[in-house]
Computed example of a mutant assay.
Amino acid sequence: MIPLAMMLQDTTVEALPEEAAAATASLAADAAASAPAAGNLDILQLVLHASIPVQLVMLVLLLASIASWVIIFRKKRTLDRAEREAERFEERFWSGSDMAKLYAAATERNREVEGLEAIFEAGFREFSRQRQRRGADSRAQLEGAQRGMRVASSRELDGLEHNLEFLANVGSIAPYVGLLGTVWGIMISFHGLANVKEATIATVAPGISEALIATAMGLFAAIPAVWAYNRYATKVERIAGRYDAFSEEFSSILERQVHIED
């Protein structure tokens, strides 16, 4: 035991060589310098260095996103105009104006009518046409007016619903298209490991980052499209209810007028 203790006492801790200390300091400096750079994500460089199939997927998603935003702004303007037109015509209609004057204003030359005014114009035109026929009873007059209003209402709603299906398709398909680009990019990254002797995270990280951009672009295209579709579909449904209510009320007015004349 005594020789072992003496050997331990004689053992001294030698300092690191200067080269080893310098190497350690250099590694620490490199790690500190690379840490902020890793947090800087250059989206443009990731897109430009992605494979051709992934770039094609990104291009398709970008075009779909641009088309969606164009439809979103146009549809907002169309639906807002339809609501304003409905409010203005209902105010004129229920203010006690003569229906013949409203019909004459709706049938003026070089004037396009839409919304409730178009429904009123179609119903009153068919009602007047049935009244001019000999032998047409009150039931035929009302059915003709209702048929004309249904056709006009269907035409107006078709115009309001135009391109809404595109937003629905983008919202449901875009995430899967982006996922397709991601899967393809990851496949390319792992296929490239066959030529690498030693695979590390640094080897596959750039390829995976490029591939994940496709998924991000798919979500970027899908989220606004889904939101706009739900919002505008609700607006169209509310306007359709307004059209139906007006058609029923106008039919009641025409029915009372026929009974008074009879």
Rank of each mutant, 00 (worst) to 15 (best):
A152W: 02
G207E: 00
A174Y: 09
I188A: 10
I201H: 01
R155N: 12
F166W: 03
A214Y: 07
V226W: 12
V183R: 09
W184N: 02
A225R: 11
I201W: 14
E210R: 13
R155V: 14
E165Q: 09
M187F: 13
A199Q: 09
M217A: 12
G171L: 03
R150N: 11
M187P: 08
A222W: 02
S153C: 14
W184L: 14
I186G: 01
L157Y: 07
T215F: 08
A152Q: 02
A216G: 08
A202I: 03
I208L: 15
A199F: 11
R150Y: 11
F166A: 05
H162S: 06
G181N: 08
P206E: 11
L179I: 09
P206F: 05
F220R: 08
I208Y: 10
A168S: 14
E165D: 08
E210P: 07
L212H: 08
E165L: 07
V151K: 13
A194I: 04
H162E: 09
H162K: 15
G159S: 14
I213W: 06
I173M: 10
I201V: 15
R155L: 14
A214W: 03
I223H: 07
A152F: 02
G185T: 03
A202L: 10
L164E: 01
P206Y: 07
Y176P: 12
I173A: 15
I223A: 01
G178H: 05
A168W: 01
P175K: 12
A222N: 07
E198C: 01
A225I: 07
V204H: 09
F166C: 01
G159A: 07
E161H: 11
E198Q: 10
T200N: 14
N163H: 15
K197R: 13
I186P: 01
L212V: 15
E165C: 00
G207D: 05
G192L: 00
H162I: 08
T182A: 11
I213R: 01
V170G: 02
I186Q: 03
L167S: 04
H191N: 13
L157C: 10
M217N: 05
E210T: 04
L179Y: 07
V170L: 05
R150H: 09
A174V: 09
L167E: 00
S154C: 03
I201E: 09
S154D: 15
E156P: 08
I201K: 02
P224W: 12
G185K: 00
L180Y: 05
